[in-house]
Each structure stands twice: as structure tokens, then as C-alpha cells.
Design a protein around this nucleic acid. Structure first.
Lengths: 146, 146
DNA sequence: CTGCATCCGACTCGATACTG
DNA sequence: CAGTATCGAGTCGGATGCAG
């Protein structure tokens, strides 16, 4: 860490949000930040989204979330399980069968996540269009943007 | 967490398809996935949230998003700017003054993001309670979990 | 003030191999 | 099937220094 960014912000500037939540993700020491990272992480968000429609087994999840490795999927699930967003149910049969489901808090979070994902997908057209513009301008004039 | 969540977007990102095929984040090749990662990334989400209430200058943003370094903040802003979610406005005065604002698409996404963050913060009590339970059970039982 | 370049440690990922 | 252990490689992120 650096000395320059260590707790420089005072409680004098929070312009936004005057609600009653004791948790503030903007603070680096707030326990909600790691939780948010589990939820919004590269794979966490996709895993939660994939669990929206009922129990899913490990390898099904792996197929559904295209590109994730076993190791990382296991890590992701552990984190979400420990946060109480995901429930792991293991059947003592053979072949081994483990089903993952969303807990009630997990459903709440996943619902919001789904809305976000939907919003992002809905924005994709404008994003892609903007990027083309942005890239060509950057290639030509450099800092000469709108 | 590192991964490539916070990686800077560049022209080597998966190329887009111009047809009207629906975007599916679950697909590894879908262009919406990197965009979602910019938005939900460790810092991207906090930056978008911090920009909700109007223009913010670089260093203000840095103070607001506690713990982020200049380099990473700049990277994050570049990615979001290229996606068309954030607008960078530089005033040619001295001292140099740069203001970042949300574009309309950025506002839509940030709104959903805020809801998600609020939901996560609202879940924190149950999360922390659950974790205590989870950890003691794991400690008693067998191998410790992450 | 803003922010790019570079160096470098720390961390994460993914592939493989192995256990229950 | 459902993971865990290990290892190499790649990346990220922080600090510093410099430029506009």
C-alpha cells in the first residue's frame, strides 16, 4: 500500500446516499466490499445468474458458465456459499451428486444482478457503435474527442 | 482478486457481430461479457456508483473510491469510456481539470448497479451472521474452507 | 492536477494429476 | 461426478518518476 491513498477521504464529502445503511462499499475497510466483489466478480455474477432457475449440479454449472475452470468455479461457489448466497446440497449416493441452489438472500441479489445484466445486454448496441467511433477517433486525433 | 476483471479494454477484445443476434453473457465469445466485466469489476462498479451524482474529477474520484490507485483508476475509466458509459471532459485551463460524467447508457447501468449494491448492503447482516455459523461448523468438522 | 510509462511483487488463473 | 493439490505462466495492481 501507499501512504498517499491510505484513508485520505474524510466523512466530509459523501454527497451521495444518505440512507441508514451502516455498510459503505466505498470504504476500503467495509466488510461489504469483499462480498460485493464475490457477487460482481467475473464469475460470481455469471454463477448467480445461472442459478436463477433452480438447482444446478456442478458440471452443469460448468458447462453453463462457458469458460470457467473447475478450480475457479469451486472457489467461486465456496465464496458465495460462505456468504450465504448459495446453498450446497450433497447427496450421499453414487455417482456423487451435488446440487447448488440460491438461498433467499442469494435470490434477492441474483434478481438485481439479472436486471443489471439485462441492462448491459440492452446497451450493447450503443456500446459497440460507440466503440467503433471511439477507436477510429483515437487512432486519428488522439486527445481530440468530444 | 486479479484475473482479468480490471483489464483494460483494447482493440484485441473479441470482435463484435453486427447482426441482431441476442447477446448472451454466458457464451465465452459474446462481446457483452467483457463489457459486463468492466461494469461489475472490482473498481468499475464502485466508479460507476460514485459517478451517479454528477461530474467528478479524477482525484475526487480517487478519494471517493477508497483504495484504488491512479493507474487502475485510469484504466477503469478508460475501459468505461470506451464502452460509452463514461464521458471524459477536459478543461484546457490551469491547473488541469478533468471531469468524468455518466453518459445516458452509463446512467442506466449505474442505476441497476446501485440497486445491486443496495441489495448487497442490505444483505450484509445475514451474510455476516451466516459466515460465523459457517466458519465454526467448518472448523469443527473437517478441512477449512476459503 | 492529470495521467502515462516502467519496474516488480503478489496474486490469480488454468492444466494436469489425484482422491473420495 | 465432485472436488482438491500442485505448479508454471500470465496478469494485475502498487510505487515511482516524468510529462502535458
Amino acid at each position: 500500500m501507499s501512504g498517499s491513498i491510505g484513508r485520505v477521504a474524510d466523512k466530509s464529502d459523501p454527497v451521495y446516499k444518505a440512507d441508514d445503511t451502516p455498510f459503505d462499499v466505498f470504504s476500503r475497510t467495509c466488510p461489504s466490499r469483499p462480498v460485493l466483489e464475490h457477487v460482481t466478480g467475473r464469475w460470481g455474477s455469471l454463477v448467480l445468474a445461472a442459478l436463477q432457475n433452480g438447482p444446478v449440479r456442478f458440471n452443469d454449472l460448468r458447462r453453463r458458465v462457458d469458460g470457467v475452470s473447475q478450480k475457479v468455479l469451486a472457489q467461486t461457489l465456496h465464496a458465495l456459499e460462505r456468504d450465504g448466497f448459495v446453498n450446497r446440497h450433497q447427496l450421499s449416493v453414487f455417482p456423487l451428486r451435488v446440487e447448488y441452489t440460491l438461498t433467499p438472500p442469494g435470490q434477492d441479489v441474483a434478481a438485481k444482478l439479472l436486471e443489471l445484466i439485462t441492462q448491459v445486454e440492452a446497451s450493447m448496441d450503443s456500446v459497440l457503435a460507440f466503440r467503433q467511433d471511439y477507436d477510429s477517433n483515437a487512432a486519428a486525433g488522439h486527445t481530440a474527442r468530444a
